[in-house]
């Protein structure tokens, strides 16, 4: 059974919600990312979304764009991100890892070669931002064969009939993009999120995570009450950007602890 499914079942037994942080691999460098991944787990994260940097990230706001630029300046590639997961797995065999990125670096490596290596190093889920279900056929087939989960996005603009189509393909969890915009943007409309998650739950059997626009403990807690998982990216990447080598681990840990605490507060 997949690590992601296990994790959600364990959380559900304990009546807890998942905290899923996103960081860009290689920001500020791969050695630090490896340390940060353990720090994320230690401070209360359940699943780690690891961003594969890309030169033209059209769905990302300025914060994650800059993280990608820093990672690419350090020559981070998809292959080196997969090596990073392998190193992490030597120490941590439990925490699910989801790779999130854009199609082109994956196609450059080759979809089958990518999935084979991802399976080998212990990747649990893959989310390709610019592979909507229409274009994800080859990747999905390969992921399924290798028992890696296919994570899909759902948006405020997704029509109900389409939610059912996505549900038929989605494994692991679905990721509801809580606002119209790029990562790190705007303000959440909690009432709207609540309605939409309810609608999604009618069609989707896997857990529903909510991300985009979660800035602090308060929004994290509110979203946790409406869904199964809270995804926090830009705000965490900001923390990384504003830290230096000495403070980065403690800053990331204390930020994740504060979010964890808020989510767990009744």
């Amino acid at each position: 059974m997949s690590r992601i499914k296990n994790k959600f079942e364990e959380l559900s037994r304990n009546n807890r919600k998942a905290l899923i942080p996103f960081i860009t691999a290689g920001d500020p460098n791969l050695e630090t990312t490896l340390i940060l991944m353990s720090a994320l787990v230690k401070s209360g994260s359940d699943i780690i979304e690891l961003g594969i940097p890309f030169s033209d990230p059209i769905a990302d706001g300025p914060t994650i764009q800059r993280a990608s630029e820093r990672a690419l300046a350090g020559k981070t590639s998809l292959s080196s991100v997969l090596d990073l997961v392998q190193k992490f797995r030597e120490k941590d065999k439990e925490t699910p890892i989801v790779l999130m990125g854009y199609a082109n670096p994956i196609e450059a490596l080759g979809v089958d070669a990518f999935v084979a290596r991802a399976a080998e190093v212990g990747v649990d889920g893959v989310l390709v931002v610019d592979y909507p279900p229409e274009e994800s056929g080859a990747l999905n087939t390969a992921l399924k064969k290798n028992q890696i989960d296919s994570i899909f996005l759902l948006a405020p603009t997704t029509l109900e009939a389409r939610i059912a189509d996505v549900a038929a393909l989605a494994t692991g969890y679905v990721y509801y993009v809580s606002l119209k915009g790029v990562t790190g943007a705007g303000h959440l409309d909690l009432e709207d999120v609540s309605k939409r998650v309810e609608q999604i739950k009618k069609h989707v059997e896997v857990p529903v995570g909510v991300g985009f626009g979660i800035r602090d403990g308060e929004t994290a807690r509110a979203v946790a009450q409406l869904s199964d998982a809270v995804v926090i990216g830009s705000r965490l990447v900001e923390e990384i950007e504003q830290s230096d080598a000495k403070t980065i681990v403690t800053n990331v840990e204390s930020f994740i602890r504060s979010i964890r605490k808020a989510i767990d507060t009744e």
Binding site: D130, T158, R162
Partner: peptide, 20 residues
């Protein structure tokens, strides 16, 4: 009908834009 010219073209966009 899916916007493909042989292997090229297509709709490689984030979900938010699909409906538009």
């Amino acid at each position: 009908h899916k916007g493909h010219f042989g292997p090229y073209g297509g709709v490689f966009v984030p979900e938010t834009l699909i409906h538009a």
